[in-house]
């Protein structure tokens, strides 16, 4: 959730934007140009007519910096709504990881056992490799990857965080 080292906290910010060319570059450019962190970023269209996309950015900063990030995002013309999900109330944040483990013998069996414990899905397999699909909080995926790494050659692909408020609250 929110670690508060040095007065900093992690913020999960969801932004509803026009689904148009360059809009992601505006958001990313704002973060890099003003020296804000991006820990993770996801984007995809969310309206039935594909007219708007939702960008979810996980970032870090003091409360003042997070407020500043929201205010700076608010200046961008094609932005409709901004929500700091971590500050506004309970929310669900999930990430999907695809983890390839190349191993034989005992490490391969161990990989399977761990995957079972994490309820990871096997989406591809060969005699010497698995691709696991795992969904959950980022920390869960971190933990899974930490356990897999010693077992063989690993390759990781992660989606970044998608998040939404619990209950009836929306930013539609």
């Amino acid at each position: 959730m929110s670690d508060t080292t040095n007065g900093q906290r992690t913020a999960t910010i969801s932004v509803l934007v026009d689904n148009e060319a360059g809009v992601l570059a505006r958001v990313i450019g704002l973060f890099s140009g003003r020296g804000y962190n991006i820990d993770s970023l996801t984007v995809a269209p969310v309206d039935a007519d594909l007219s708007r996309s939702r960008i979810t950015v996980v970032t870090r900063g003091t409360d003042l910096v997070i407020e500043q990030i929201k205010a700076q995002l608010g200046r961008l013309v094609p932005i409709h709504k901004i929500a700091d999900l971590s500050a506004d109330g309970p929310h669900v944040a999930r990430e999907l990881g695809l983890i390839k483990v190349i191993a034989r013998g005992e490490p391969r069996v161990e990989a399977l056992r761990i995957a079972d414990a994490f309820r990871a899905k096997i989406v591809d397999t060969t005699i010497e490799s698995f691709v696991f699909e795992l969904t959950g909080a980022s920390e869960k995926i971190d933990a899974f990857i930490d356990l897999m790494r010693p077992l063989g050659t690993t390759e990781i692909s992660r989606s970044g965080v998608a998040a939404i408020a619990r209950g009836t609250r929306t930013i539609i």
Binding site: L64, Q68, A71, G74, R75
Partner: peptide, 8 residues
């Protein structure tokens, strides 16, 4: 007029 100027 610009919210980002406030508390910046």
């Amino acid at each position: 007029i610009d919210a980002s100027n406030i508390n910046k």
